[in-house]
Amino acid sequence: MKIIGELNCIGLCLSLSDFAPYIGLLIVVSIALLAAKQMRARPKNRLFTFVSAQVVALLAILATFYIMQCSEMLTVYLYSSYVVISTILIFGVLRFYDRILVRRLDAKPVDGIMDWVQEFVDALTSASVYYYDSAVPKAFAAGRSIFVSVGLLEALDDDELKAVLAHEAWHIRNNSRTPFLKQLSGYG
């Protein structure tokens, strides 16, 4: 019931305000941009229209926030915090997830046990290579780091290991760093 009351309150504030038509316009533009995103063919254009739509929607929220005269603004606060938290999660956690993994796996720079591995990856992309304590042969990329288990280093000879490292370096260069952006742009 409280939420409905607040929605009514927001509606009242909007209708009393001179800004209402502009906010309506912003929302229409935002929806139009979202629709346009689906029709764009080139990944960069898709991404650009998507981000523009988000920015316009954010402007609409900020404008609503600004003209609100009522005291009950719980829904606005909720939505704003949702936007802030999800933005941090999407851009922050994916970019810095490797830091978390290093701590969780107790991973150490590969230079400590093999000399040529980091050098080999440096030639392909800028990423740090870590090894972690496990006999199960595994390799994966996250953020700007490549992780390999000791079991993998044990099981593969140099050429095989180079193939695995090149594959992980490809993830860093192309996809894994920003998988959500790739998805939004409808590419890959």
Binding site: I113, D115, D133, S134, A135, V136, V150, G151, L153, E154
Partner: peptide
């Protein structure tokens, strides 16, 4: 088949292992 089991045995404290580098090859 042994890799996962070895991890479990080490974690449970029945076996221990050290990382060794023999002629450029990493070994447990």
């Amino acid at each position: 088949s042994v890799a996962g089991t070895l991890d479990r045995l080490v974690k449970a404290g029945y076996a221990s292992r050290t990382v060794d580098n023999v002629n450029g090859r990493v070994r447990y």
